[in-house]
């Protein structure tokens, strides 16, 4: 994307997350923490059930950024994992939506403020990215 306008709202993207996605991500990333695939372990440590990897949610945020920017080089990316994304053991999974606003354009650096929600609630705190214009 060549023209970034400060204040522009980027079209929200919605992605579906299923247990199969978490298993695939575990294998790809090397994060085999059982809270992401075992209800038994997840509930034993006080979680409501299997939760998605925070990094999977952040990867979906990065996916939206890549789609908006035409796969621009990412210079910074980050977020707090403020609420778990509980992923049910069914075919439908759970939806995660990524919205974004162009916060600043400084030389060739474009700063994006993101809003990442699931079930209508924010799941990431201060999700943000900086891409090269």
């Amino acid at each position: 994307m060549s023209a970034w306008t400060v204040g522009a709202e980027l079209p929200a993207r919605t992605y579906t997350v299923t247990r199969a996605d978490l298993v695939r991500y575990a294998g790809a990333s090397g994060d085999f923490n059982p809270i992401h695939w075992s209800d038994r372990v997840a509930t034993a440590v006080g979680l409501p059930g299997v939760i998605g990897h925070g990094m999977y949610t952040l990867a979906l945020a990065a996916r939206a950024v890549a789609e908006w920017s035409g796969a621009a080089e990412v210079l910074e990316l980050g977020a707090k994992f403020t609420a778990p994304v509980v992923v049910p053991d069914d075919e439908d999974g759970v939806e995660v939506t990524v919205a974004g606003t162009v916060k600043a354009v400084e030389d060739d650096r474009v700063r994006l403020a993101l809003v990442v929600t699931s079930g209508g609630s924010k799941v990431l705190g201060n999700p943000r990215a900086v891409v090269r214009a």
Binding site: N33, I35, V41, E73, L77, G78, A79, F81, G125
Partner: peptide, 12 residues
């Protein structure tokens, strides 16, 4: 299993 990820950021 006793670890929960609280925050992550990358600077490239």
């Amino acid at each position: 299993s006793r670890i929960v990820h609280g925050e992550q950021s990358f600077t490239y």
